[in-house]
């Protein structure tokens, strides 16, 4: 078996299933965990699942645009991580915890 033919038998539906599973794991983490830093990591996981799907479609279609969208997703993820971690540090300074369930002041 040539090394090329191994990769060519992967269907795109396999990548779709994989990224769906990763996305749902990330969603489960966002719903279940209380630590704010783990929540941010789960969001990164969901973004990566979407990136994988973008790349799979882009390279199966032979179109570069999908991979450029991955770059823009990475830009947004980096900005989100920077601002999110700054907010987390500020929250830790005020409440001495990173538990998001303490942030219920706006609940009324």
């Amino acid at each position: 078996m040539k090394p090329d033919s191994i990769f060519h038998t992967v269907e795109i539906s396999h990548y779709i299933y994989l990224s769906c599973v990763l996305f749902c794991i990330g969603l489960f983490g966002v719903l279940f965990r209380r630590n704010a830093i783990v929540l941010l990591m789960c969001i990164e996981l969901m973004l990566n699942a979407v990136n994988l799907l973008f790349t799979a479609f882009s390279s199966y279609m032979g179109d570069s645009s999908g991979q450029l969208f991955v770059f823009f997703v990475m830009v947004v993820a980096a900005a989100e991580a920077a601002v999110g971690l700054a907010i987390l540090v500020m929250m830790f300074r005020n409440t001495r915890t990173t538990d998001v369930s303490f942030l219920s002041n706006l609940k009324g």
Partner: peptide, 11 residues
């Protein structure tokens, strides 16, 4: 079901 293999060069 798309079975086309990944094309070289796009990445």
């Amino acid at each position: 079901h798309i079975m086309r293999h990944p094309e070289a060069g796009t990445g």
